Amino acid sequence: MKILSVDTSATAASVALSEEGKLIGETFINTSLTHSQTLIPMVEQLLNNTKTEISDIDAIAVNAGPGSFTGVRIGVAAVKGLAFANNIPCVSVSTLESMAYNFLSTDCIVCAVMDARCSQVYNALFEIKNGVVTRLCDDRALSLDDLKNELLSVDGRIIIAGDGTDITCKYIGNEIKNAESAPVNLKYQRASSTALVAFEMINNGQTVSAQKLMPVYLRLPQAQRELNKKLGGRTK
Results as ranks from 00 to 15, higher is better:
K177T: 15
S32C: 00
G81Q: 02
I167G: 07
T70P: 15
K187D: 01
G25H: 04
S5V: 12
F28V: 08
P41K: 02
E200W: 03
R219T: 06
L151H: 12
V76M: 07
T50H: 09
K22A: 14
F69C: 03
G25F: 02
Q45L: 15
F126P: 00
T52E: 13
D166M: 08
I24P: 03
D58Y: 04
K229E: 13
R135A: 15
E53A: 03
T168V: 11
S32P: 00
E53V: 00
N228A: 01
L96H: 09
T52R: 02
M114N: 12
R73S: 01
A198Q: 07
A13F: 08
E26C: 14
S98C: 00
V6N: 05
P183G: 05
L82K: 07
A10I: 14
A12F: 08
P215K: 01
E150Q: 07
V154A: 00
T8A: 03
I3Y: 08
P41A: 01
T165H: 15
M99F: 09
V76H: 11
A161C: 14
R157E: 13
F126Q: 01
A16R: 07
S68N: 02
I176K: 00
T38H: 01
V133Q: 04
S153P: 03
N204I: 05
T168P: 15
A61Q: 03
A191F: 11
I40F: 11
N63A: 13
V208E: 13
A124V: 12
D145G: 05
L23P: 10
A179N: 13
A77E: 05
A198C: 05
N149Y: 04
G205Q: 10
N203K: 06
G156Q: 07
L196R: 08
S9F: 04
L47N: 11
C108P: 14
D163W: 03
T38C: 03
G21M: 08
A64E: 11
I109K: 02
I158F: 05
A13P: 15
E20A: 12
V154R: 02
T11R: 02
Q37F: 11
S68K: 00
C108N: 04
S14N: 06
G205S: 06
A78R: 03
E150D: 08
I40T: 14
S94E: 09
G71C: 01
Y217K: 00
S209T: 15
N48Q: 14
N228C: 06
V76P: 09
N185V: 11
V208F: 10
T38I: 14
R190A: 00
A223R: 02
R117Q: 10
G205V: 09
A13M: 14
D115E: 06
G67W: 12
S119E: 12
G232E: 09
A198D: 09
V110T: 10
T31I: 13
Q222W: 01
Y101K: 05
S14H: 08
S153Q: 06
Y101M: 04
T194Y: 13
S193K: 14
D145L: 14
N123T: 15
V110G: 07
L104A: 06
P183Y: 04
G65A: 01
T106D: 03
I176Q: 02
Y171W: 12
K177W: 10
L151N: 08
T34G: 03
F103A: 00
N228E: 11
A64L: 11
S92H: 01
R225I: 13
V121A: 00
M42F: 05
G131Q: 13
A191N: 08
L17W: 05
R225Y: 13
L144Q: 05
M1N: 09
G67S: 04
